[in-house]
Structures are given as C-alpha cells and as structure tokens.
Amino acid sequence: MGMLVGKVAVITGGNSGIGLSAAKTFAAEGAQVVITGRRQQAVDDAIEQIGAGALGIQGDVADLTHHDRIAKEIANKFGALDIYMANAGINTITHSAEVSEAEYDAQFAVNTRGVFFGVQKLAPIMRDGGAIILTGSIASEKVLDGHAVYAGSKAALGAFARSWSIELKSRGIRVNVLSPGPVDTEILAKLGIPAEQRGTFEKAMAEAIPLGRMGLPEELAKAALFLATDASSFVTGVNLRVDGGMTLL
C-alpha cells in the first residue's frame, strides 16, 4: 500500500520541474493530487503525465483570489486537505544595480506573498496532522551571482516555516522548507542557458557541488515525499537542503 493512500495533496506550480515530479511521486503513493499552474495547456499536459485521477486548477499564486478558489474547490470536492506544497516560484537573474521595480515586485509577489497567503487560505481546511512544504532555495543561504532579490524572497520562507510550526502546533500540522540546489529541469533554458553552452554549465555546476553533479527532479520529489509522510513525523520548522552539499562550499 502507498504511503499517501487516502491523502489529498495540493502542489502549486505542479505543471513542471520539481512540482511535477513531486506530483507524480505523490500520486504513485496513492494521494489524490491537485496541481496549479499559470498556463492551462501546461496544466492539462501535466495532468496527463500524472494520471491517477489528478486534477488541475489554472491560476497565478500572485493573485490572492486564486487561493480562495483553490480552498473552495478542495473543500467542495474532498472536504479537507492533508498536504500543501507551496512550490510555484520565479527567478530573474540580475545584478542588484540593474534590478527593475517590476522584477523585484514579481519575484516577491510569487515567491513570498503567494506562499504566505496560500498557507493562510488553505491551512484552515487542512486536517490535523497535515504537512506543509515550502519550496525554498539554497540561494537564501549561499550567495549566488545575480540572485539577491530571489534570495531575499526565498529567505522569508524559513521565517514563515518557523512561525507557522508554532502557530499550527496544536493541530499537529508540520511546516518545513525544502531547499533545492541546482536541479536538471527545463528552468535552465528559461534562465537563458543556450543548448550549446549546456555542457559547460553542467561542468561548472559539477565542480561547485561536492557530489559532482546537479540534482534530479526525482531526488527532490523523494525529499518532498519524506516531508509529506509520517517518515518525518517528528520534523517541523526545518530547512532541508537537497543540494549535493553545495551550501557547504
């Protein structure tokens, strides 16, 4: 029997990358998975890949009404929620001197504001003993070139997790941060790394990571599964770095 049979899980940004891999893993373990994403076609494509009766809700986590709609749909369809993975995020790599107001606002709107109000709206419909997972980043601890705004937006998640772990302790709801290092997903192309430079980029990453390679989405999904299940029943308020040791250097 799967580790998540009978559980309802919502994953924001579940249409690609780490979110999609986590959705597949949760579904394979028996969870009823609901994903969200900004583009309807991407959500529909992801649902086909996830299978197992997964559902999709199109919308932007920066829009606070989106969270109200998610909460309403989950309550109507399933009655309650067991796992919430606030995974949606964006990153614009720009030196601080060149960051525009629009870039700054967009990253904080999605990465920070969207996470805060998502938890605010969905925690009330979570079953006691549930799990909240916030997808952070090692950028919140390790200085990376051009990541100042992104790092700031992700650093807030650690403070959220610690506060919510105490605020929700009477209900047994655990809140943890999952902080990936470099992961081999389609986001690399979105960050502007051309195909012809991929080999050079991977070599540079391998040299910067003690384990000698980038992570795989499946490895992050396994870590998320740990935080979502009773395997981590005595773990709350932590920042789990899944980075091949990169933060150590």
Rank of each mutant, 00 (worst) to 15 (best):
R38C: 08
T185K: 02
I132M: 06
E98I: 00
V149N: 06
G130C: 12
I173P: 05
I74C: 04
M214V: 13
A123F: 11
K142M: 14
G172H: 11
F160L: 15
D63Y: 05
M205K: 01
V235P: 00
Y84S: 06
Y104N: 09
A28F: 10
L20Q: 05
I83E: 12
T25P: 00
Q197M: 14
A189M: 02
M246I: 05
D230S: 11
Y84V: 09
L20I: 10
H67G: 13
L157H: 03
G51V: 04
K121V: 00
A223I: 04
K154P: 08
I125N: 07
A46G: 15
E196G: 08
S96L: 15
D44A: 14
S16W: 04
I50A: 13
G192M: 12
I50Y: 07
T65C: 00
A139F: 02
K121G: 00
A224W: 12
E218Y: 07
D145F: 09
V242Y: 14
G192N: 13
A159Q: 15
K203L: 07
S233T: 12
N15E: 15
I187M: 13
G89K: 12
M1S: 14
T185F: 06
H66I: 01
V61Y: 08
S170M: 11
D82H: 15
G199C: 06
D82R: 02
G129Y: 10
A86C: 10
S153T: 10
A131M: 09
A139C: 09
S170Q: 11
L4H: 01
I209M: 08
G118P: 02
A156V: 15
M126L: 13
L81I: 13
Y150R: 12
F234Y: 15
R174V: 01
G53D: 12
I187D: 03
M1C: 03
D145K: 03
D145N: 02
Q197T: 13
I35C: 05
Q40V: 10
L249W: 04
L220V: 03
V5T: 13
S232G: 01
E202I: 01
Q41I: 14
V99Y: 01
N87A: 13
V5Q: 14
K7I: 09
A109K: 14
L216C: 04
Q58E: 15
A123S: 15
I50C: 12
G19Q: 11
I173D: 14
K7R: 12
G130V: 13
E101K: 01
G237H: 01
V99F: 02
